[in-house]
């Protein structure tokens, strides 16, 4: 394995990331992607240095998911325009599937986001899912943290069908599901309870008319009123990315969910919970059920992780070492 040619200084890199330095954000993301042991150490230091209050207490982490062809990328581009008009800096992580045969991937998402390309308050990184994490790449969580340190809004865009759609909801404050007019699949998943209910539902391509209205009314039919007063009421909206209609309202709904989370005082808890889920999932992939049991079982592990401070890499490494030491005994 080759040594890093010009190892970055993680502390100063973290400072530049917080200053929204684009080149620093790019380098930090590259470092988080780097699997060499030396890079892992630097990455852990980088994550540990990023300002905690930003990672766990501010910004807005949004997941946008839906079936292929629903127009997620054009909707993202339309939302970015609204956010930019509101003066917000936006980071985007666009996840595309990897080929199971070659391991390669085509990341074509940038194309349709092009209208925002020359704005330096918009930063897009595409990622291949690399066959792990059920449609999401393992790098998404740590990379989201770097982006949270730099930008006001971080949007994770993933292709999702059925069950895989929920993965992004385990990593993001607000999950927005994009439905395709006249495609009943997602509605079936929702009805059957296979798919976790997202926080915001939107039917894109509202300009097609009847089919979109029908899908919207079917989606609304799957929604139940909140069980308790003060619970989040999931809205179902119609929008058209190409015509630019309904985008402001969508941005408002997403924002309203963030405001609700803050009012409930939930933001720090769910962010730590995401991190705990990410760590457990990684341990599960490496050591299987047996490993998780050895470490005390999934729910105890999740609860204890929320309590322990530390960056995701530090926490992961310490649990990993604990397992390896235990097994060695």
């Amino acid at each position: 394995m080759l040594a890093l040619r010009t190892p970055p200084d993680p502390e100063s890199l973290a400072a530049s990331v917080s200053d929204q330095d684009r080149s620093a954000v790019a380098k930090a993301l590259n470092l988080l992607d780097d699997k060499r042991p030396e890079a892992r150490k630097l990455a852990a230091r980088l994550l540990a240095t990023l300002p905690k209050e930003r990672l766990y207490g501010s910004g807005h982490l949004i997941g946008l998911t839906g079936p292929p062809g629903a127009g997620k990328s054009s909707l993202t581009a339309a939302l970015v325009r609204v956010w930019r008009n509101r003066g917000l800096a936006v980071g985007i992580l666009a996840v595309d599937p990897s080929s199971p045969i070659s391991g390669g991937a085509l990341l074509g998402d940038r194309l349709r986001m092009l209208s925002s390309d020359l704005d330096d308050k918009v930063f897009i990184r595409s990622l291949a899912c690399r066959g792990e994490f059920g449609g999401l790449s393992a790098e998404v969580w740590p990379m989201s943290l770097v982006m949270l340190a730099a930008f006001d809004i971080v949007l994770v865009e993933t292709v999702g069908v059925g069950q895989k759609e929920i993965d992004v909801s385990k990593l993001t404050d607000t999950t927005c599901f994009v439905a395709q007019p006249a495609s009943g699949d997602s509605i079936q998943f929702l009805k059957a309870g296979i798919m976790e209910i997202p926080h915001v539902l939107v039917v894109n391509k509202a300009d097609v008319g009847l089919a979109a209205r029908k899908t919207l009314s079917e989606l609304r039919g799957t929604l139940k009123p909140p069980a308790h007063a003060g619970d989040w009421q999931v809205p179902a909206l119609a929008a058209s990315a190409t015509k630019g209609t309904g985008i402001e309202a969508l941005a408002d709904s997403i924002e309203a969910h963030r405001a609700w989370l803050t009012a409930q005082g939930m933001l720090p808890t769910i962010r730590k919970r995401f991190q705990a889920e990410w760590i457990v999932k990684r341990l599960l992939e490496e050591f299987g059920r047996f490993g998780i049991e050895t470490l005390g079982g999934e729910s105890r592990l999740l609860d204890s992780l929320v309590e322990i401070p530390g960056s995701p890499f530090e926490q992961y490494e310490s649990l990993r070492n604990r397992f390896l030491t235990n097994r060695g005994q």
């Binding site: 990897s98 070659s102 391991g103 390669g104 085509l106 092009l114």
Partner: peptide, 16 residues
């Protein structure tokens, strides 16, 4: 080129 590179295992950002 983009498709072929994917076929041999590259992650390809195609910018159009």
């Amino acid at each position: 080129i983009a498709v072929k590179a994917r076929d041999v295992g590259f992650e390809v950002v195609y910018e159009g």
